[in-house]
Design a protein around this nucleic acid. Structure first.
Length: 501
RNA sequence: GCCUCCAUCGUCUAGUGGCCGAGGACAUCGGCCUUUCACGCCGAAAACAGGGAUUCGAAUUCCCUUGGAGGCACCA
């Protein structure tokens, strides 16, 4: 049985964004797809790469776990669930990296470096001025033992650098094929910092080996450090895993997602009311495709059909408009009850304070009211944060709107006034206030008043909702109820009479 | 500057030598449905970066140019 072991290895220096999460998704899909066959077993491992004490962000680990959980990307090994290869926090594995570094020094693959940060800065500046490639000049590479102890006596704590051998390094990338680097374009990079923590390169290689990772699916930005990793695997006597460098997701400016542009935390999408199933679908199709026409695809089908072969080579620009559309598709697929449930928190939080909150006075009648409203807005919503603004007129006593909205184009004040008056009279004696009764009353009324149906309905729409665009009129009025409708029409009349006079 | 990767409609993509006078989706525009909005339906516009080479035949193979991206920290 073939073991597919993949990992998502975020560093808690920030909150995961769309790009980070898509990497997690592809790893997860690959693992779950592998488990579909009886010949293979796939494991998805979560490892926290917290080796930079200076950039650590409080709460980042929790947010990472929460983001994955929200999307349903469950991990087989890692924080909270444990596993046979733990611990899964790199900060708890320092001895492993240190002994690997020690081994490399002893075997001549690495060396201590005593250069000060100042010297390195200067070096870099000089190289850039001369338009030379930047990189360490191997100043400490061949220090004698006595030179080393001289520095040690001064209390200088060295870093450990990897000794790049001459030659070329070639590796096969599952997405791009063979990639070759001349080793002389690589510099003697740091593997162990002076605080005893490893850099990414060391920790990553040691852990991927120790955790028996079979495939490294990571973002494209790592492609150029892969030869370093290969060289390290070789010097440690490890068999390297297979690599697949995923294309990056670009912001609207066509560059890497950054704090400045587009790197919105995934959690914010949840706050905006995007559905996890829509996010999964959308992200999966950013850099992967099933065929020439599939755009809406379930998680199950994704797992069933996912394959490395169909990963794209070109970077993708994140298009929020397409996400909005797709999220709308998923929202419309929800049952009315489920939509109500999901929309409720957004309604509770999104309505202005002065408004009647749906569940404030009476939870059960409030809930009943909300579930009548929900179907009216469900097909108009793209993400749940839009729910409050689309339905706010259901929850307010005082409608704020410009009186001129009442006057449909070509309609004067007198006609509007008399139409509203007649409508008010007829509605007040209407016994059953449901949508079809309202339609039966109002359609003929338009004829009677010599108005186009659109004119009368438009007028009533503004009077009852304060808006020119709203859910279907009769259903809206039915939900609002007779009392509320009459009140609002009366108010509209008042507005008309006091306004332009 | 150096290294590496990439190159089909505005965007996501299908396309692995003839099925391509390039397909789908979002967005855009037009129409239908319709009491408005939305949904839905129909339609339009919209791309193989350029140049060579290979071949009977190239979006598909090769080379060059150009363009874009990523990397070049005691960050990951």
């Amino acid at each position: 049985m073939t073991q597919v072991r993949v990992r998502y290895a975020p560093s808690p220096t920030g909150y995961p964004h769309i790009g980070n999460i898509r990497t997690a998704l592809f790893n997860w899909l690959f693992a779950r797809h592998s488990s579909e066959s009886i010949m293979t077993k796939g494991s998805f491992i979560l490892r926290i790469e917290d080796t930079d004490m200076t950039r650590k962000v409080e709460g980042a680990v929790d947010t990472i776990l929460e983001s994955l959980r929200w999307l349903g990307l469950d991990w087989d090994e890692g924080p909270e669930v444990g596993g046979d290869f733990g611990p899964y926090f790199q900060s708890q594995r320092l001895n492993l990296y240190q002994s690997a570094a020690k081994q490399m020094i002893e075997q001549g693959y690495a060396y201590p470096c005593y250069c000060s940060p100042e010297r390195l800065d200067e070096l870099r500046t000089r190289q850039m001025q001369r338009k030379q490639p930047t990189g360490y000049d191997r100043h400490c590479r061949d220090l004698t033992l006595s030179e080393r102890s001289h520095f040690e006596e001064q209390g200088i704590i060295p870093v450990v650098r990897f000794k790049i051998p001459p030659g070329k390094t070639t590796f096969r990338d599952l997405i791009r094929g063979n990639v070759t680097f001349s080793n002389n374009t690589l510099d003697d990079f740091i593997i162990l910092k002076s605080d005893g923590f490893p850099t990414y390169h060391l920790a990553n290689v040691v852990d991927d080996h120790l955790m028996q990772i079979s495939h490294v699916l990571r973002a494209d930005e790592w492609l150029s450090s892969t030869p370093r990793h290969i060289l390290m695997y070789q010097s440690l006597g490890y068999e390297p895993p297979l690599f697949a460098h995923l294309t990056m997701i670009m912001g609207p400016d066509h560059t890497k997602l950054s704090k400045r542009y587009g790197a919105t935390s995934l959690i914010e999408y949840r706050q905006q009311g995007y559905l996890p199933e829509a996010i999964i679908n959308f992200l999966a199709l950013l850099g992967w495709s099933l065929d020439d026409k599939t755009t809406i695809i379930s998680r199950e089908d994704l797992i069933k059909h996912f394959s490395l072969e169909r990963l794209s080579k070109t970077a993708a620009v994140f298009d929020i408009k397409k996400l909005n559309w797709m999220n709308g598709v998923y929202i419309r697929q929800l049952s009315s009850e489920e939509f109500t449930q999901r929309a409720l928190p957004f309604l509770e939080n999104g309505l202005p304070h002065e408004m009647e909150h749906p569940l404030y006075h009476n939870a059960s009648t409030g809930m009943d009211y909300v579930s009548q409203i929900a179907p009216l807005i469900q097909e108009r919503v793209r993400y749940l944060a839009e729910v409050p603004e689309l339905s706010r007129f259901f929850f307010t006593e005082i409608l704020e709107y410009d009186t001129t909205l009442l006057l449909q184009k070509g309609m004067d004040k007198e006609r509007a006034t008399s139409a509203l008056q007649t409508a008010h009279e007829r509605l007040s004696i209407l016994s059953s206030f449901d949508a079809s009764s309202l339609e039966e009353l109002l359609r003929p009324l338009a004829v009677e008043l010599n108005l186009k149906t659109g004119e009368l309905f438009g007028l009533l729409r503004v009077a009852t909702t304060g808006q020119t665009a709203a859910p279907p009129l009769f259903q809206t009025m039915a939900v609002l109820g007779k009392e509320q409708c009459l009140k609002r029409i009366a108010l509209a009349l008042e507005k008309l009479l006091t306004a332009t006079s």
